[in-house]
Amino acid sequence: MSIQHFRVALIPFFAAFCLPVFAHPETLVKVKDAEDQLGARVGYIELDLNSGKILESFRPEERFPMMSTFKVLLCGAVLSRVDAGQEQLGRRIHYSQNDLVEYSPVTEKHLTDGMTVRELCSAAITMSDNTAANLLLTTIGGPKELTAFLHNMGDHVTRLDRWEPELNEAIPNDERDTTMPAAMATTLRKLLTGELLTLASRQQLIDWMEADKVAGPLLRSALPAGWFIADKSGASERGSRGIIAALGPDGKPSRIVVIYTTGSQATMDERNRQIAEIGASLIKHW
């Protein structure tokens, strides 16, 4: 067993022997300050990975656009099909120029040879490739089937209704393509630590998230040396920005953090900075 597999395998073990964890309200002060700075709603939740206990939250049951954070859930659904023998990570999918949508930095380079399901999930999570996400959605039956998968997991909140890039419209009070911080955190925890996926698939999912290449300005920018993070960011219209992450010190994840914001007129750089500052406060008061 590799060191990485050993780390994931021990998560349920540590759950039975973990020391108590305590929240620090200073982080919530920073979350509220971020709302003021951005002139927008901010949703935040911090969940103990082992016990599932909510350590701190702000607007945990308000809806926010999922943006590209849905791609982790999508690849979780794909992996569940792999575990059930209904899909193969090595299966090659061919597509055409007509399938390409905006922001497809990986898939646009493989029009001649296609990409495997594994490569598409990697592109969707690590590079947030939109065409990769659409091709993967097709393999499971579309957005409604992803919503059904989540319902079967016990998540009756999170929903995907449209494809890339339309799902990023982020219209106020529109429940399409939205989640709540509490629902997303719970669902992510189930995918990473529960029995829904095999150990190999849980490890694959967290490996893809750990290799995320487009979330550098967010929580990763505040991460001390030696800390672990596996994450997925998202951005969409109407000043929306978000990130879902499993992180912790000593090279292993111990908490789930979900941050969403929407309705801001601030620049992308400012939205990134506010999320990074929330992360810095979280780490300082860990």
Rank of each mutant, 00 (worst) to 15 (best):
I3K: 13
I3N: 15
R7S: 10
F13G: 07
L19F: 15
H24M: 07
H24P: 09
P25A: 04
P25Y: 06
K30L: 09
V31G: 00
K32E: 08
D36A: 15
I54V: 15
I54S: 05
S57A: 14
P60H: 12
P60R: 09
P60K: 10
E61R: 14
F64W: 00
M66A: 02
C75F: 01
A77V: 09
S80F: 13
R81V: 05
R81W: 04
V82I: 10
G85E: 09
G85S: 10
Q86A: 12
E87L: 08
L89C: 04
L89E: 03
I93G: 00
S96R: 13
L100A: 02
V106A: 07
T112M: 02
V117S: 01
R118S: 13
A123S: 09
A124G: 04
I125V: 12
T126D: 09
N130G: 03
T131Q: 00
T131A: 10
N134S: 01
N134G: 00
L135A: 04
T139D: 11
L146A: 03
L146C: 01
H151L: 13
M153A: 13
V157G: 06
L160G: 00
R162T: 05
N168Q: 06
N173E: 15
D174C: 03
E175Y: 10
E175D: 12
T178S: 10
T178P: 00
T179G: 00
A182K: 15
A183L: 03
A183R: 05
K190I: 09
T193A: 13
A200L: 08
D207Y: 06
D207C: 13
A215G: 08
G216A: 10
G216D: 10
G216S: 09
L218S: 03
L218N: 02
R220H: 01
S221F: 05
A225R: 13
W227L: 04
W227S: 00
F228T: 03
K232V: 00
G234D: 04
A235T: 04
R238F: 11
G239M: 03
I243T: 01
I244Y: 00
I244L: 04
I244T: 02
I244E: 00
A246I: 12
G251A: 09
P253V: 03
R255V: 01
G263A: 13
S264C: 10
A266D: 04
A266V: 08
T267F: 02
D269K: 11
N272M: 01
Q274E: 07
G279A: 10
S281H: 08
I283C: 04
K284G: 08
K284T: 11
